[in-house]
């Protein structure tokens, strides 16, 4: 301390520099002005507050592609409920840390995208007021059916019903997912495609191996039969073995 009150004057110099600097150097500003809407208009009454989805989308594109706020259910191209990926396996419901997901399995099965008929969620509710945006449901889902939405203005005048999002509110198309999280969605789609290709290749290989095995078996059996027949020509033939393997193959083919 060379000067009496030197530290205080130094501090005052710092605040003065910040005072002046904040007018010229935008980098210094702690806050950024929040543009309410694209035309910078304040909402006029309380009901106006939540933004339209499209408006929020324009905001979230400035946010990073990992932004997560709230889960949504993905469906592929087509009618939402015809192509929903969720099979109501209820893993997410079990794993959800704050237990905010409520799923009811359907009674009947439904076929989607050429796959085997599966259950679908008859009810799929998420309580926004409980959800803590942790993304655990996304990670545990084996069907890539649930991903995070970045829609962030979920306020509603209805305190109970409005905060409980129903299945139909949660359904979003894969295209929408691509729009909000392009990189993540592309990676996910690629992984699904790879997995599918790998599965198909595996299946093909398995089928071929099976076919070969069956052929070999049929051949061997035929040979054995011929031998048997040769051994006891008067004995009537048994039910043909290949039919059995065919049926088994069909069963596996699903």
């Amino acid at each position: 301390m060379s000067l009496l009150g030197g530290g205080i004057f130094k501090g005052m110099a710092v605040t003065l520099r910040n005072f002046v600097g904040s007018y010229f150097d935008k980098e210094r500003l702690t806050t950024k002005e929040y543009a309410w809407r694209t035309d910078d208009k304040l909402p006029e009454r309380a009901g106006d507050y939540p933004k339209e989805e499209a408006e929020q989308l324009s905001d979230t594109t400035t946010v990073t592609h990992y932004s997560r706020n709230f889960p949504m259910l993905l469906h592929d191209e087509g009618e939402p409920m015809d192509t929903v990926r969720c099979v109501a396996c209820q893993i997410c419901e079990r794993e959800c840390p704050p237990q905010c997901i409520y799923i009811e399995k359907s009674k009947d099965k439904m076929e989607r995208g050429g796959n085997k008929a599966q259950f679908y969620p008859a009810t799929f509710d998420i309580d926004v007021s409980v959800c803590m945006s942790c993304q655990i449901c996304v990670e545990v889902c084996p069907f890539d059916a649930i991903v995070m939405n970045s829609q962030f203005e979920l306020s509603t005048p209805d305190r109970f019903g409005g905060l409980l999002l129903r299945r139909d509110d949660l359904l979003k198309s894969n295209d929408y997912y691509h729009k909000i999280h392009p990189e993540e969605a592309a990676a996910r789609d690629k992984r699904i495609a790879d997995e599918k290709a790998a599965k198909e290749a595996k299946k093909k290989a398995a089928e071929e191996a099976k076919k070969k095995a069956a052929e070999a078996k049929a051949k061997a059996e035929a040979e054995a039969k011929a031998k048997e027949e040769a051994e006891s020509a008067e004995k009537p033939a048994e039910a043909p073995a290949p039919t059995h393997t065919d049926a088994k193959k069909e069963d596996n083919g699903e």
Partner: peptide
């Protein structure tokens, strides 16, 4: 640096 200048030598804080 700026933060230290503002706080670390301030007689009142000391």
């Amino acid at each position: 640096d700026e933060y230290e200048k503002l706080l670390c030598e301030n007689e009142i804080i000391l």
